[in-house]
Computed example of a mutant assay.
Amino acid sequence: MALHKLQVDDFYDDSYKLIAIHSRLEDYRLAYLLNKHLELRLERKEKDIDFKYLESSYSIFEWDNETEYILWNLISNVCKKEEDSLYSSGTLFSDNEKVLKTFHLISEYKKVDYFLKISEESQSINEKNILSKLQDIPQIITSYTVDPLKIKSKDHLIF
């Protein structure tokens, strides 16, 4: 009997561009600046991206440009969460110390603060033009394109 193996990755073929953004701005401020400089209409979605049973959540802003068939997403790559420490001082009355844990949506890019995902049907987006407009924003430290096929955890970008 012959053994047939199906690869699930073969069925998912979504064409999108991914731009990494380094910026210390809050997510809503960055979305405002992108709206202003790139002439977008990004809005915060009601639900964040949650992983591992609410262990970490990442903010997401979205704009569906229906006239040009382009879906824009601004996704936070960093989640900082305060948790109780498991450290024991060995005393009867111990202080509950809090520890700030940091999680990353795409763990290969731990220094990236945000990702701009551009899903399009017609391949009409000029990446160099977008990158030059992003570099003109003084609050953005740097930005560059990322090849989505080289990311191990690219499933985290499916929403």
Rank of each mutant, 00 (worst) to 15 (best):
D84I: 08
K133V: 00
Y87C: 02
L92W: 07
Q135G: 05
T91F: 08
S107C: 10
I130G: 02
I130A: 02
V99E: 15
V99N: 07
L131N: 01
S122L: 13
K111Y: 00
S119Q: 10
V99K: 13
L105F: 06
S122C: 08
L92K: 12
F115R: 02
S89R: 07
I130S: 01
L131M: 00
L131K: 03
L92C: 03
S119L: 13
K133H: 01
I75W: 11
I75C: 08
N126P: 04
K80F: 00
S94N: 12
C79Y: 06
N77D: 02
Q123G: 06
D113K: 09
S124E: 10
I106A: 09
E120G: 08
I118A: 02
N126E: 13
V99G: 08
L74A: 00
D84S: 02
S107M: 10
V78C: 05
E108H: 07
S85L: 10
L92E: 11
D95L: 09
S122N: 14
L116S: 11
K80I: 00
Y114L: 11
D113M: 11
S132H: 03
I118D: 02
N77Y: 08
S122D: 14
S88D: 15
G90M: 15
F115D: 01
E97A: 05
S119A: 04
V112Y: 05
L74W: 09
V112L: 04
E127G: 12
I118T: 03
L86K: 08
V78N: 09
K117M: 12
K111Q: 13
Y114I: 08
N96E: 10
Q123M: 15
K111P: 00
S76G: 13
S88G: 04
K101W: 00
C79Q: 02
F115T: 06
I130C: 00
K81H: 01
N129E: 15
K111M: 13
H104E: 13
L92N: 07
E97R: 08
L105D: 12
D84K: 03
K80H: 01
